[in-house]
């Protein structure tokens, strides 16, 4: 199993097993010997699953797709931290070189009332889709746009909007938050569009609708612990939450200004 560096370690995996959202789950322990440190964390799970299948056991279900840190699908809660010990990376970009020989690694699904477990480590994050559907867009039908360069956008605004738009919708912010709040996710989309001229027309409605939907989905409130920012693999800034609050207060106070 050695990679190019030739280095291997032995670790013990304690992984959450849960058949579906209605049944109770429990931890299962698997020793993993000779793990190449060049492996990604998910590749280590591939090896584990290969073994479980060969032994006639049920492999561990987990969500993953692009394995390059951009699709937002992978979602493991590793040693008490969403996406594990490294700052600024998703689970798929975490490599075994971040662990030591002899480590015990505890792996759980995202835990939040608004993210029910599908199976083992896979959870249902469709609440995020519904939040976007409630207002995370600019209402522009195909074919209605004017020439792209007729909208001038100051570079700083464009850059800030881009930084907010870099959110991958993985839900680590919710998993990290003791309140299970989705404020960082919601604020990233609200900020992106509030910073751009294209987003101005629907600015008030957008923030009111998205916050309303967020509450309906059962996400908790924000108490400014900033755990979301610390764990976000894409470095989405807490400033976005401040902007969300400003947008929300402004929209609430002036909702009848039309």
């Amino acid at each position: 199993m050695a990679g190019t560096s030739g280095k291997t370690i032995n670790v013990t995996i304690k992984v959450w097993r849960q058949k579906n959202k209605n049944q109770k789950g429990q931890f299962e322990t698997h020793p993993m010997k000779g793990v190449s440190v060049d492996m990604s964390f998910l590749e280590m799970f591939d090896v584990l699953n290969d073994r479980l299948i060969t032994e006639g056991k049920d492999p561990v279900a987990f969500d993953h797709d692009c394995r390059e840190g951009i699709c937002g699908m992978c979602s493991m809660y590793i040693n008490g931290r969403p996406h594990g010990p490294k700052q600024g990376v998703t689970t798929c970009q975490l490599h075994m070189r971040s662990f030591k020989d002899g480590d015990t690694i505890v792996v759980e699904p995202w835990r939040s009332a608004a993210f029910p477990v599908v199976k083992d480590l896979a959870v249902d994050r469709s609440a995020f889709d519904r939040i976007i559907a409630s207002g995370g867009f600019v209402s522009v039908n195909t074919g209605n746009a004017r020439d792209a360069n007729s909208i001038l956008i100051p570079k700083d605004d464009a850059d800030q909007a881009f930084n907010a738009a870099a959110c991958i919708g993985c839900g680590a912010c919710v998993a990290a938050c003791k309140n299970g709040s989705a404020m960082l996710f919601v604020s990233a989309k609200v900020s992106q569009l509030a910073l751009l001229p294209q987003g101005q027309i629907e600015r008030d409605e957008r923030v009111l609708n998205m916050v309303n939907q967020m509450d309906e989905e059962g996400f908790g409130n924000c108490t400014n612990t900033a755990a979301c920012e610390a764990e976000c693999p894409k470095g989405i800034s807490l400033e976005n939450i401040a902007r969300l609050n400003r947008e929300y207060i402004s929209a609430s106070n002036f909702a009848n200004r039309k």
Binding site: V138, N144, P154, A158, F162, G199
Partner: peptide, 17 residues
């Protein structure tokens, strides 16, 4: 044009283009 109208944050020059 369509993507910019949707708020896709493409890279820009200092003049806003």
């Amino acid at each position: 044009d369509q993507c910019v109208a949707q708020g896709v944050p493409f890279a820009r020059e200092y003049g806003g283009l």
